[in-house]
């Protein structure tokens, strides 16, 4: 939906210092642009719960991290989110790929469509659903609003395949 360089430039403009990530087939394409320019720094982790924990350490240390994962990883991340966002009150921000939202050709009946948004609501993460390229300009104001309010937030990015 968005080019790698467009996303990388936006993250740099927003002051994101580190992108902590486990890839999927959509957001994973952004890694090369981020890594080639070196800003923000790409931090690869082994599972998505770990991504929130690394981001928590970055935030505590004064950096501005972004968690970049797929919605399946959000479902894996529960206890890490509880601890980082709600015990320690860290206003982390994420871009979360929303598997199968645009089509279910690969995974008909994908239950990600059932559980992702209720899970974000349960964890009190203020999210915006982005389904069209024209919504690119919605990302910046939501990031800034969450940052200024000191609350966790996310962009839920519609994807078309697993």
């Amino acid at each position: 939906m968005f080019s790698s360089e467009k996303i990388r430039t936006l993250l740099e403009q927003l002051g994101v210092t580190h992108v902590v990530t486990v890839p999927d087939s959509t957001i994973g394409r952004w890694q090369t642009a981020i890594e080639e320019r070196g800003t923000p720094r790409l931090v690869r982790v082994c599972r998505e719960g770990e991504a929130w924990q690394v981001a928590a350490g970055l935030q505590l240390g004064g950096a501005t991290p972004l968690v970049l994962i797929q919605c399946t990883g959000l479902l894996e991340s529960g206890d890490a989110i509880r601890n980082a966002l709600h015990d320690f009150g860290l206003p982390l921000f994420a871009i979360i790929g929303y598997r199968s939202y645009l089509n279910q050709d690969t995974l008909p009946g994908d239950t990600c469509l059932v559980f992702t948004e209720p899970t974000l609501d349960a964890w009190k993460i203020d999210y915006r659903l982005v389904t069209r390229p024209s919504q690119f300009d919605d990302i910046r104001p939501h990031f800034v609003a969450c940052r200024d309010a000191g609350k966790p937030g996310a962009i839920l990015l519609a994807e078309g395949k697993a």
Partner: peptide, 22 residues
Amino acid sequence: LVLVPSAMGSAPPLGLGLALAQ
């Protein structure tokens, strides 16, 4: 930083984040 309460297993990745930030 006494990580209590914690998400069990979270101390090493939290330390990684802090080490990168500081």
